[in-house]
Amino acid sequence: MNSPRIELRQLTRKLPSGGRELTILDRVDLTFQAGEFAAVLGPSGSGKSTLLALMAGLDRPTAGEVLIDGMAIQSMSEDELALLRRHKIGFVFQSFQLLGNLTARENVLLPIELSGQPDPVGRANELLAAVGLDDRGHHYPSQLSGGEQQRVALARGFAARPPILLADEPTGNLDGATGRRILELMTELRRRAGTTLVLVTHDPAVAALADRRIHFRDGRVERDEQPVLAVPAETGALS
């Protein structure tokens, strides 16, 4: 049997805070299959973003394991983690995190060139066209609106054809209509590429788009709504 794309075993993260230890994540066990679209839900401070950081090797667990395609990553060096992200993980952030010194096209180009894919410029243009920004590629992030910046970030997230995309409150800084457009784009791109998408949000309406919803509270999985348990009525809740 194929190993799951992402597997978390007894994942624990504690942070020192004012002289004592704060448990952010508490012995979390989760698996994500290839091509799955999961939303991680929970109030702020419930450990969602930390979960994302640990899955991407941006942070290191206090205990437990993270396996990507069956490989434990918690003991990898910073260099190995960087290579893992380069080839396997794309990101979309709440605050876009575009590089301000680079144009929109250059932001999209960076992961393509980094992963050594053929025809980087063609691929970048194709992605910019897919997010509807083919005529704005030469603009710097500061010259783009929030929605446009997030669309560039989406294009960048998918640029290196990563098998995994991690999204952290991708609509958090956008107004409702723009947010919806971004989500539509993201699900469309994911569907075409077959990407495993883990999306963190505190907004049930956003989470409703996902096949699977995992509810977090106080660093633990409170409820895991698997696809079979999904309530169809919630799909229309975006409005």
């Binding site: 290579l83 995190q97 590089l99």
Partner: peptide, 16 residues
């Protein structure tokens, strides 16, 4: 610092 963090996120190794 933010840009450096993003570069690391995108898979640039510290040595790069």
């Amino acid at each position: 610092l933010d840009a450096i963090a993003v570069l690391k996120c995108l898979g640039l190794r510290p040595r790069e």
